[in-house]
Amino acid sequence: MHDPIPLSLLAPGQCAEVDQVTGHPDHVHRLEELGLRSGAAIEIVQRGSPCIIRLSGQKLCLRADELFNVLVRCVATN
């Protein structure tokens, strides 16, 4: 396992796992309801803001802002 990095640093196509989502508890709760939670497999499809992520079978469009932060851990690919 690698050290956690911000989601924005993830390269497209690289597989990772959500380490933690930080921010206001209410906002984090909302994101968790959508499936963005610790342990979920995540992948960047389109970078930028808004970015597109693939999250266990679904695609989400996500605007990067100061309201929340997603830290991910790269999964070693072989």
Partner: peptide, 9 residues
């Protein structure tokens, strides 16, 4: 307050 913008595709 603007909630984070997350939208399903």
């Amino acid at each position: 307050p603007t909630p984070p913008f997350v939208m399903e595709l």
